[in-house]
């Protein structure tokens, strides 16, 4: 799916469709868990709502104040993991990491903030299952969109 992410040059019809009508965008009324990834430097965030049924991701929604690269990647990634299990989702992130090399450093950071928000939602679920009171789980990004290279996130 992400082999079509080539922006800004050579924009595909699929990418354009995700720009015009992002999939799974907004809020989920009764999610199992919520995760946020925040770039403190630019204040860009992605919030991910995940509804789980056992290991199956029954539904997802995401929202962001970020750039259109973040929106397109969030739209594609959410479509990819919906109705699959969490193991598949983690595998999808791994596969994505391998493909990130074709993107610009800025686009890599956009992708990273999307995945981090999803992983934060799973961490929120884990914490809730362990009896911890937590409205949402927050990951702060180490690398900013303003930086040139992508790095790891930090809790």
């Amino acid at each position: 799916m992400f082999e079509n992410v080539k922006m800004p040059e050579g924009m595909s019809a699929e990418t354009l469709e995700h720009l015009m009508n992002p999939k799974n965008y907004g809020k989920l009324e009764n999610p199992s868990c919520i995760g946020v990834a925040l770039d403190e430097k630019t204040k860009e965030y992605v919030i991910f709502y995940t509804l789980l049924d056992g290991d199956i991701i029954k539904d997802v929604r995401f929202a962001t104040n970020g750039c259109q690269d973040t929106v397109v990647i969030g739209s594609m990634f959410s479509e990819m993991i919906k109705n699959n299990d969490t193991e598949y989702a983690n595998g999808a992130i791994e596969k994505m990491h391998k493909r990130l090399g074709v993107m610009t450093p800025q686009q890599q950071i956009c992708a990273e903030i999307v995945f981090s928000a999803f992983l934060a939602s799973l961490k929120n679920f884990e914490n809730l299952q362990a009896g911890k009171e937590e409205e949402l789980h927050l990951f702060k990004m180490k690398e900013s969109c303003e930086a040139e290279n992508m790095g790891n996130n930090d809790e």
Binding site: M20, V36, I47, A63, N65
Partner: peptide
């Protein structure tokens, strides 16, 4: 030919 609604604002914004 690419007119689209801006996406919804989240209250965090």
């Amino acid at each position: 030919g690419i007119l689209a609604l801006p996406r919804q604002l989240h209250e965090m914004t």
